[in-house]
C-alpha cells in the first residue's frame, strides 16, 4: 500500500538523514521503526506526508507518487495519512472535541470549520471515536487540562477522524509513563486491527515495539539495517542497529512483557485485553 523507492533526504545543513530507503508496507500492517536518535526515523515519516520535503526518490501511496503532487493534491493525499505525535501536538486552547474534529479539516470547506458546523456524520463519528478511546467524560474540556495519556488518546481520535489508510506515528509513548505507554500502544495496535490500518510507529522502546508490532524495521545512519518479525530481533540485530551494548535486559523484558494484562483501564473501566 505504501512503497518507498530509494528515498533520500539531505538537509540544507548537508546532513544526509535518509540515504536511499526502499521499503514496502502492505495494507493493514503495523511496522515498528527503531533506531538510535538521529538515524532518520522522524525524517522518514515526515517525508511520507511531506511535512519534510524529500530530496530524492519516490513515495507511492497505492499508485500515487506523493513526491510529485501539487499543493492541493497533497492536501487531498494527506487526509489518508494521519499523524500522531510524541508531544501529542494538540491545539492546547481548543476543546477535546475541536481537536478531534480538526481531523476532518481536509474534508470540509473553510466556513464549516470556522463556524464549527461539521457535517452530522463527522460529529457522530467523533463521538463514537471518543467513546472508543475512552474520553466520553472529557469532550468539552480544553486539551491543556488533560493528562499525558488522555492527550495521546485525543491525538489518536483526531487521527482516526481523518478516515486514514495509514497512520504515521512519531514516538507515541516517549512522553508517557511505562504503564500508560503500554495502554497507548495497545490502543493504537487495536484500532489498526479493527479498522485495517497500516501504521509506521517510530519507537525508542525496543521491548515495547517487540510486544505490539508485527514487523520491525531498524534504521541506522539513514539506512535500513534490519527488517523482519520481532522474533528475529536478537542481540546481534540490536548491535547492528544501535551499536555494541549488553542487550540481555532488553530481551528479557520483552519476554516478560508479552504476557497479557488482566486488569481494568482506570479511565474507561474496560478490560485492557479483550477476552
Amino acid at each position: 500500500m505504501l512503497h518507498l523507492q530509494a528515498l533520500t533526504k539531505q538537509y540544507a545543513t548537508g546532513d544526509l538523514a535518509l540515504g536511499g530507503i526502499t521499503l514496502t508496507i502492505p495494507a493493514g500492517q503495523v511496522v515498528g521503526l527503531i533506531g538510535p536518535s538521529g538515524a532518520g526515523k522522524s525524517t522518514l515519516i515526515r517525508c511520507v506526508n511531506r511535512l519534510v520535503e524529500p530530496s530524492g526518490g519516490s513515495i507511492y501511496l497505492e499508485n500515487i507518487d506523493l513526491t510529485r503532487l501539487s499543493r492541493s493534491q497533497l492536501r487531498q493525499a494527506r487526509r489518508r495519512m494521519a499523524m500522531i505525535f510524541q508531544e501529542f501536538a494538540l491545539v492546547e486552547r481548543l476543546t477535546v472535541m475541536e481537536n478531534v474534529l480538526s481531523g476532518q479539516l481536509g474534508y470540509v470547506p473553510f466556513w464549516r470549520s470556522l463556524l464549527r458546523q461539521f457535517p452530522a456524520e463527522a460529529v457522530g463519528n467523533a463521538f463514537a471515536t471518543l467513546d472508543r478511546v475512552g474520553l466520553t467524560d472529557h469532550i468539552d474540556k480544553r486539551a491543556d487540562t488533560l493528562s499525558g495519556g488522555q492527550r495521546q488518546r485525543v491525538g489518536i481520535a483526531r487521527a482516526l477522524l481523518q478516515n486514514p489508510d495509514l497512520l504515521l506515528v512519531d514516538e507515541p509513548t516517549a512522553s508517557l509513563d511505562p504503564k500508560t505507554s503500554r495502554q497507548i500502544m495497545r490502543l493504537l495496535t487495536d484500532v489498526c486491527a479493527e479498522q485495517k490500518l497500516a501504521a509506521i510507529i517510530n519507537i525508542h522502546d525496543v521491548a515495547l515495539a517487540r510486544m505490539f508490532v508485527q514487523r520491525i524495521v531498524g534504521l541506522r545512519y539513514g539506512q535500513v539495517v534490519f527488517d523482519g518479525p520481532p522474533e528475529n530481533l536478537d542481540a546481534a540485530a540490536l548491535t547492528m542497529i544501535y551499536g555494541a551494548e549488553d542487550w540481555t535486559g532488553t530481551m528479557q523484558e520483552a519476554d516478560w512483557g508479552t504476557e497479557p494484562y488482566d486488569q481494568l483501564d482506570p479511565m474507561t473501566q474496560n478490560r485492557l485485553v479483550p477476552a
Binding site: 494527506r78 499523524m83 494538540l90 491545539v91 479539516l105 474534508y107
Partner: peptide, 10 residues
C-alpha cells in the same frame, strides 16, 4: 501544533 493541523490536509 501547526504541523499537526497541516498534516490533516487543512
Amino acid at each position: 501544533q501547526t504541523e499537526a493541523i497541516r498534516s490533516t490536509g487543512a
